[in-house]
């Protein structure tokens, strides 16, 4: 039985080495809880290596819906929160989880739909009117339904339109309960209207015959905010690194990098940080 014991011991040793591996390398990092739109559009992949090259601090991004990102940050599982749902962000700060909220950048939401446009909303500049028309036509609309920033925005527009979507859920109003990209895939599959942020749409690779039908309404403005998690909740080295990240992304270099990021020649995000705002 000695042979078995030896086999078990060496197996355990190997397993420990492999398991222990990640703890030994790459200790200088912070975690950013962010949204799928910033990751799926490719912005963060472009932005963050610049910061790392300059400071040696690695930035690890967990991209989930705004609602989940905020919950994760509340659990202390992140150093920076980068999302787009102003009211929820301000509540996060007011509850003592974050230091202060800063405007970071904006883009806008658009409503995309099939070329056939069954509800005839194409060319409308009034988002609320367009939604009312979709509801009146019982045209299929795919919603994120996941408590994300985009979802919150969409619900506020339905409210303004006086449409009770919860009553229509499962009929023409379909909640996918998933991220922006997954919802676009689903919506395109069933020929549904979808509200998406412009950045995700431009970078999206599976557009089919879908195109932008509604855009340019002020009500579709999409503001991103960035918050550093309360230092009292962070491990000590992370505090300085997080501060460095905040300074960089809100400063001239970070803002310029955001403005410079383009997909297919189109700028996706517009920096608008005003420190101390």
């Amino acid at each position: 039985m000695k042979r078995i014991r030896r086999a078990f011991i060496s197996a355990a040793a190997i397993a420990l080495c492999v398991l222990g591996g990640p703890a030994l390398a790459g200790e200088n990092f912070i975690i950013v809880q962010s949204t799928t739109s910033t990751q799926n559009s490719g912005l963060l992949d472009d932005l963050l290596p610049r910061f790392t090259a300059m400071t040696g601090i690695e930035v690890r991004v967990v991209a989930v819906g705004t609602g989940q990102a905020i919950k994760n940050a509340r659990n202390g599982d992140g150093d920076i929160l980068l999302v787009h749902a102003r009211a929820a962000e301000e509540k996060f700060v007011a509850d003592g989880f974050g230091v202060q909220r800063f405007d970071l950048m904006y883009n806008d939401f658009v409503v995309v739909g099939p070329a056939a446009d069954p509800a005839q909303v194409g060319g409308t500049a009034d988002a609320v009117a367009a939604l009312r028309r979709i509801a009146a036509a019982n045209a299929i609309f795919a919603s994120r339904g996941d408590d994300s920033g985009t979802h919150k925005k969409e619900l506020s527009l339905w409210q303004a339109a006086g449409v009770d979507v919860s009553a229509a859920s499962g009929t023409w109003y379909r909640e996918t309960g998933s991220g922006m990209g997954a919802t676009l895939n689903t919506g395109i599959g069933m020929g549904a209207y979808v509200m998406t942020d412009r950045a995700t749409w431009i970078a999206f690779g599976n557009k089919g015959d879908f195109r932008i039908l509604v855009e340019g309404d002020e009500a579709l403005f999409n503001q991103y905010g960035v918050i550093m998690v309360n230092p009292a909740r962070l491990r000590s080295p992370k505090i300085a690194w997080s501060r460095a990240f905040m300074d960089w992304i809100l400063g001239s270099e970070g803002q310029a990098a955001i403005a410079a990021y383009k997909v297919d020649g189109q700028q996706l995000f517009f920096p608008n940080a005003r420190r101390g705002s």
Binding site: P22, G26, I31, T36, Q39, N40, D45, R60, V61, V62, A63, S178, G179, M180, G181, A182, L184, N185, A203, F204, G205, N206, K207
Partner: peptide, 23 residues
């Protein structure tokens, strides 16, 4: 968390590319 270069594996990469529409 599907973190690039840290915790991105085959399945999470597939999920990510799907959500980007890169089917």
């Amino acid at each position: 968390g599907n973190i690039n270069h840290v915790t991105r594996v085959m399945t999470t990469a597939i999920a990510l590319e799907t959500s980007k529409g890169n089917l």
